[in-house]
Amino acid sequence: MVRRMINSPLTILGLVLVLLIIITAIFAPVIATHNPTEVNLLSKLEGPSGEHFFGTDEVGRDIFSRIVYGTRISLKIGLLVVLISFPIGTILGAIAGYIGGRIDQIIMRATDIFLSFPGIILAMSIAAALGPSIENVLLALAATWWPWYTRIVRSSVLSLKNSEFIEASRALGANPFRILFKEVIPNAIAPASIQASLDLGFVILAAAGLSFIGLGAQPPSPEWGAMLSSSREIIRDAWWAATFPGIAILITVLGFNLMGDGLRDVLDPKQR
């Protein structure tokens, strides 16, 4: 299994990128060359140089250092959204699939309703109702993301439900909740967790988008989407301000995507 992963250069690239992002987030204070929020009007709108690797923005903040610190924000959003929505989605999906009947109907109709909005639109309206802040974007994204896990887990549970080892636990008289949590969910969780690792990237992308339209992180926060948003004012004079934060998003999303694709190839070869 490990060999198959190592054999795919793209998966390796994904792992390396993800590792790089995690290291950057942890060691941000060491890697950053400047204080990410320090304003220095004397050095505003400077192009990339040895002093400022990625140049400076409209108030002289060092873009490289801001991007480095931004890793923390993006990674935190990605992880928290998945950590909130994954368990909720998984439990609901398992209940729907395992118990079936009316409960299944209700849960699945609820997912239908949530999925009848393009994700970013629903997240946008929830975040707008809650008020612009990074925490609210996090809640809004979690509220839009869970139905995907519910659907995936439900379909794996349905295919597991009548397998012999579940039948055996039932015959032994195990408590249904025990069967659900000890037998069904652990065995049904693989495809959904692959999706979750892919989603880390997509959540980060969506959060950057919401920040770009002013819902998420507020300036002066070094959030990548918010940085791109304010770069629009100076795009004529400072191409670097509009370029590097986007590359950071691209690399991060790409890293998680490649890693997720690699995991899928290893764990679920049918899907290739």
Binding site: G201, L205, A208, G209, F212, G225, L228, S231, R232, I235, R236, W239, A242, T243, P245, G246, I249, L250, V253, L254, N257, L258
Partner: peptide
């Protein structure tokens, strides 16, 4: 295709604006 899916569209838009318009 990989890049397309991983790329923030609004960023690509900014780059297009920068290159083809400005």
């Amino acid at each position: 295709a990989l890049l397309g899916v991983a790329m923030p569209a609004f960023w690509l838009g900014l780059l297009f604006l920068l290159l083809f318009y400005l």
